[in-house]
């Protein structure tokens, strides 16, 4: 499955487009990261792709077919959205919340069937949160809640997983666990991923392609070609050094900010 965005425009106020002429392509089993400063519209891109917001001009295509947010396609879009971990109004249990990921497959007047519950339980096992599945979501830590949201997205049986800063608010061990989980899901489920992140080293480690988003311009291409010292300086207005750290057979990229404090 191929997801394409063609000439997407979006702005919250009239006459000012936050996003201008956004174009990118996501192929099967590819991971794409979006990097950029706060307020450049990273989350907005994700919302437009998932159909939460509508492109004001331009479109999202899946396998060459345009999707808009009409009811029929809204149900069929095989995109799972993982929002940033946020507090819930009602203390649902983990299982109840994950089962809600089945909503697009459940009729308006129906309740989840045995099959829906089974798929939800599988998703819970897949992200490894079986031990907390009867707990209340309000009693979970940020990292656990993030895993619950990922399980909920998986329960919808998506082909593309869209994650909004999945590793923010987490300690570095949990950040690493989330990234490992995403890599595993892409491998095992054959998913494609779009991930917003604030960590260039995560992007370097994780993604095939990267969209670097600035105030008025953006760049899209292979991650290794996009995330360079010069580009980061240009888009983040800060001096950095990217250092290779050899470990076993791999070469891991470390990211150091040089500017004096």
């Amino acid at each position: 499955m191929i997801l394409e965005v063609k000439h997407g425009y979006f702005g919250y106020s009239k006459g000012h487009d936050l996003l201008q002429d956004i174009c990118f392509t996501l192929r099967e089993k590819e991971i794409m990261t979006i990097l950029g400063q706060n307020g450049t519209g990273k989350t907005t891109i994700l919302k437009c792709v998932t159909g939460i917001l509508k492109w004001q001009r331009g479109q999202t295509l899946i396998n060459g077919k345009s999707i808009d947010s009409s009811r029929k396609t809204l149900k069929q879009i095989p995109i799972g959205y993982v929002p940033q971990a946020h507090p819930l109004s009602f203390p649902y249990t983990v299982r109840e919340l994950v089962t809600m990921g089945r909503a697009r497959h459940i009729g308006v007047f129906s309740v989840p069937s045995g099959k829906d519950k089974k798929i939800a339980d599988q998703a819970i096992d897949e992200v490894g949160i079986r031990s907390i599945r009867d707990k209340l979501c309000t009693q979970l830590s940020g990292g656990q809640l993030q895993l619950v949201f990922i399980a909920r997205a998986l329960a919808g049986e998506p082909r593309v997983l869209v994650l909004d800063e999945p590793e923010s608010h987490l300690d570095f061990r949990n950040q690493f666990l989330i990234i490992k989980l995403i890599m595993r899901l892409v491998r095992e489920r054959g998913l494609s991923c779009i991930i917003n992140t604030h960590y260039p080293e995560h992007a370097l480690r994780l993604s095939d392609t990267t969209l670097l988003l600035g105030q008025h311009s953006y760049m899209f291409g292979k991650t290794k070609e996009i995330i360079t010292e010069k580009r980061v300086e240009e888009y983040f207005d800060i001096n950095v050094k990217i250092l290779p750290v050899p470990y076993k057979d791999e070469e891991i990229k470390a990211f150091v900010v040089l500017d004096s404090i």
């Binding site: 947010s69 959205y81 929002p83 809600m100 909503a103 919808g156």
Partner: peptide
């Protein structure tokens, strides 16, 4: 609303 949309519900 946002999560409802993302889960396929208007």
């Amino acid at each position: 609303d946002e999560e409802a949309y993302s889960l396929g519900v208007n």
